[in-house]
Amino acid sequence: MSDWPLYEVFVRGKRGLNHVHVGSLHAADDEMALRNARDLYTRRNEGVSIWVVRADHITASSPDEKDPFFAPSGDKVYRHPTFYDIPEDVPHM
């Protein structure tokens, strides 16, 4: 219905370290997208920071390339930090 471009919204929660994708919305421009994100995605005081980006500015991997993209890393167990004991006081792991 809307001919406004689609934006993707990323919110960093109060306890969060990273911005996390929470959804999308329509807006006429970047500034409106930010305002709309505030109204749609932080109504319950969730966020302390918002990023918006036009969906067509995101370059995404294609489902067709799933195997060549991701399968080769599947059997490289030495890339996973499973051979270490993480000390108790290391945060955010």
Partner: peptide, 19 residues
């Protein structure tokens, strides 16, 4: 606690902010 959910904190604290 996981840090990849922006809405997690909603279930905590008191609920006085709810209208």
């Amino acid at each position: 606690m996981s840090f990849d959910n922006a809405y997690e904190a909603l279930t905590e604290d008191n609920d006085t902010r709810w209208a």
